[in-house]
Computed example of a mutant assay.
Amino acid sequence: MKALIKWPGGKTRLLREILPLVPPHDEYCEPFVGGGALFFAVEPAASSLNDISSELVSFYRMVQSQDAAFLSFLDTAARLFERLGLPSAGGNSGPMDAIGAFEAASYEHRCPVFDHGNFLRYLEPNMKRSKRLSTAMKSSFYYMVRDEYNTARKHKAEGSYESALFFLVRELCFGSMFRYNSKDDFNIPYGGFSYDGKDLAAKVKRIRKAGSSCFFRNCSITSHDFRDLLPSVRRSKGTFVFLDPPYDSRFTGYSGNDFGPEDHVALRDMLAEAEYSFLLAIAKTEFIERLYEPLGLNAKVVPSKYSYSVRGRNDRSVDYMLIRNY
Rank of each mutant, 00 (worst) to 15 (best):
K205D: 10
R268V: 00
I221M: 05
A266N: 06
F73P: 02
A164V: 08
G35S: 15
S163L: 06
S140F: 01
E162K: 01
V169G: 03
N150G: 01
K128I: 06
A98S: 12
G85K: 10
R153G: 00
S72H: 12
D258R: 13
L71F: 14
S220I: 11
G100V: 02
E43H: 04
S223F: 05
R170S: 09
S93H: 11
S106G: 01
S277C: 10
R61C: 05
R16C: 01
S53I: 07
V318G: 01
L120A: 04
Y107P: 00
L120H: 05
Y122F: 14
P23Y: 04
M144I: 03
A164D: 11
D244H: 06
L267F: 03
L123Y: 03
N150K: 10
G256N: 11
K300N: 00
E27H: 13
L172I: 06
S249C: 11
L14H: 01
G192C: 03
S139P: 10
N325A: 02
E43M: 14
F215H: 15
G159M: 09
N314F: 02
D199L: 10
V318M: 10
L291S: 03
V301I: 14
G35N: 05
D263I: 06
A283C: 11
G90R: 13
L133Q: 07
T135M: 02
N126Y: 07
S182D: 08
S140G: 06
L230Y: 03
S134Q: 13
G10T: 00
Y180R: 15
E289N: 05
K11Y: 00
I5Q: 09
F259K: 09
Q64L: 05
F166I: 00
I282N: 01
S134C: 11
G253N: 14
L267C: 05
F242Y: 15
V204Y: 02
S182E: 13
E273W: 02
V169N: 09
G191S: 07
T285D: 09
P261M: 05
G117E: 12
G85R: 11
V57G: 04
L297Y: 04
E293N: 04
I282G: 01
A283P: 12
R227I: 03
L271D: 00
